[in-house]
Design a protein around this nucleic acid. Sequence first.
RNA 1: GCUGGCGUAGCUUAGUGGUAAAGCACCACUUUGGUAAAGUGGAGAGCGCGAGUUCAAUCCUCGCCGCCAGCUCCA
Length: 579
Amino acid sequence: MTTLTPQEQTHPPVDIAHLRHTAAHVLAYAVQDLFPEAKPTIGPAIENGFYYDFDRSEPFTPEDLEKLEARMREIVASDYAMTGRRVSREDAIEAFRDNPYKVEIAREIPEGDPITLYTIGEFTDLCRGGHADSTGAIGAVELNSVAGAYWRGKSDNPMLQRIYGTAFTTQQELDDYHAFLDEAAKRDHRRLGADLDLYHVDELAGGGLIFWHPKGALMRGIVEQFIRDGLRERGYLPVITPHVVHENLYATSGHLENFADSMFGPIEVEGQRFRLKPMNCPGHILIYKNDAHSYRDLPLRFSEFGTVYRFELSGTLHGLTRVRGFTQDDAHLFCTPEQLQGEFEQTLDEALRLMDAFGFSGFEYFLSTRAERGPTDDIAEAAIRNALESRNLPYGIDEGGGAFYGPKLDINLHDAIGRKWQLGTVQVDFVLPERFELKYRGADGMDHRPVMIHRALAGSMERFFGVLIEHFGGNFPAWLAPTQAVVVPISEHQLDYAYEVRDKLRARGFRIDVDSSNEKLGYKIRHWKTQKVPYILVVGKSELAESKVNVNERSVEEKRNVTVDEFAEELAAKVAAKR
RNA sequence: GCUGGCGUAGCUUAGUGGUAAAGCACCACUUUGGUAAAGUGGAGAGCGCGAGUUCAAUCCUCGCCGCCAGCUCCA
């Protein structure tokens, strides 16, 4: 921590969160002027802007937002000073007696904490503070959308109307933010999934269920192969378990009592109740349990691309990143307590290897602890902490965010344009071995309880693929691209040669197509560029004569004529380097 | 699920209380063309689904479904 000089303290640089919090006050001020019947509740700064929740029976329309925005600009231009004063709890409650939300907040401020009111112009709000000095500090402000939000996030509370907006110190920063949003929209995997013909969700089949098209399935296969290679090297054993099993399995595992809301309902057959598999662990446990194990067998690492089904609320579904049926790159490790630490560290290394191969960076680690702690949680959490510390990785804590069977480590990462995603998770579990009475024979001749590690490194193939699409913006590197190169003949006189080039490259295992369409060269080039194919190989009269191809590499201006073998070597090198 | 918005050919959009228009994509033909869209022609939706109002509904009303932005949750 740096100590501020007195000068810096009197003129602190405007904190962007303070600026946006101030903008939220300005919004509430504007709402007070234009819609006096609306009751302000809370209005914090958030990652990319701010929001303010209002209680009002009439919905705010887009036209209302425009009027509010105009009024906000006036308030900003007036450059009202933000003045705060400390009041007693009674005074605060009295000041907001017509607003039950503010009263509730005032009542709940802990004894001893200051209760403060902040005023700009004619608007006073109950607020803990953290503002710019005056409204004039806001260089650019805009309102973005209205959405419903429950008071304090609880669905049995009244629904409020949340107005989202953002604010910056300068107009330039706002423009840059818009440019960022445009870039993000261009990378939207739902858009690119359709444009590049990778997958779709079908209304007839239901939301959140993914139909992988040939190109998408091909890419998924490449990712899966990469993961499989890593698993084999690290001694994981492949297993395959059923998608529908008797409900009793999940009663025993505890999923039915802890997880029922997320499970699809029972399927009745011959008076017996079956369930779609929501998690792979119970299945892997049954395989473990089917044999007697010695400590010499451990650690035992079972892996499966396990497809699971979870009932997510319809409103939460989103492209590939929030679905109802998905395949985890799942594995369960059964080990002795002594092995736990080392095994955990290895999974962490493997997770990093995977994320690194796809060019992700900015990893963040979160230790989620279990809400209902048991006697083994200290050991489990220690294993996670020690693993992180042994690799010198800083981490945050998410109290109570763990699985019902134990604490977990979540790995967040940043994509190419700096957005955060949560993919991999590694979890320590002393509970399921207990519930299923798992055991192994120790060196002492006695039975012991193994520890389990649950881990999914990519997370789910669906979400991982969605994130990959956005990370690369559809410009997949050659090793991943469903079509690595298209051979484009200039006229049909070179069509036979084009097929010859294609077959030669295909024989080396590359994914190559020929454009045999009756179109002009410019059209064909444009078409394949929009399809984001890494290489377009143009063959005309001169290439045919020299047995060469004219290489047009994606996002490289310069074109070059090389022989087919030279191109094959170049492509092979890229694929080997995973570029 | 809840709040708000939306739902017209594969995609993007136009349109009207009297049974729908365009561009791209698709198919055929002409053209054999050297680096981001050649020309002509053709086929394709009955306007998400259902009910109501009306002489008449894609356009009005209601319900359902789906999508989008959030709330919530998480791989």
